[in-house]
């Protein structure tokens, strides 16, 4: 996919349809446990809000976790 990285695409080919969100591959029970903790809330809330969390760059999707890799939907 030539040109993919020039200029920084900021997720150009991405869509909002990929929603296997980070943190990765949690069971429902684990996810509920995470959501009940302030620690998890601090990390997940910005993701849910779609505001990009800590930076000024808008988030286009929530990422895909495969075998430990934090990937973009267009990577697969």
């Amino acid at each position: 996919m030539p040109g993919r990285h020039a200029p920084p695409s900021l997720g150009a080919p991405r869509t909002a349809t990929t929603t296997r969100c980070s943190p990765p591959t949690l069971t429902r029970r684990q996810a509920l446990g995470l959501l009940l903790t302030p620690i998890a809330a601090a990390w997940l809330a910005p993701l849910a809000a779609g505001d990009g969390g800590v930076g000024a760059v808008p988030r286009r999707d929530l990422g895909v976790w495969v075998d430990g890799w934090l990937l973009d939907s267009g990577d697969l």
Partner: peptide, 18 residues
Amino acid sequence: LRRRDIGRVRLDPWLTDD
């Protein structure tokens, strides 16, 4: 890295679960 499309991270297993 992912948002800027300038890299990808692979975390070791002890960090990928809870």
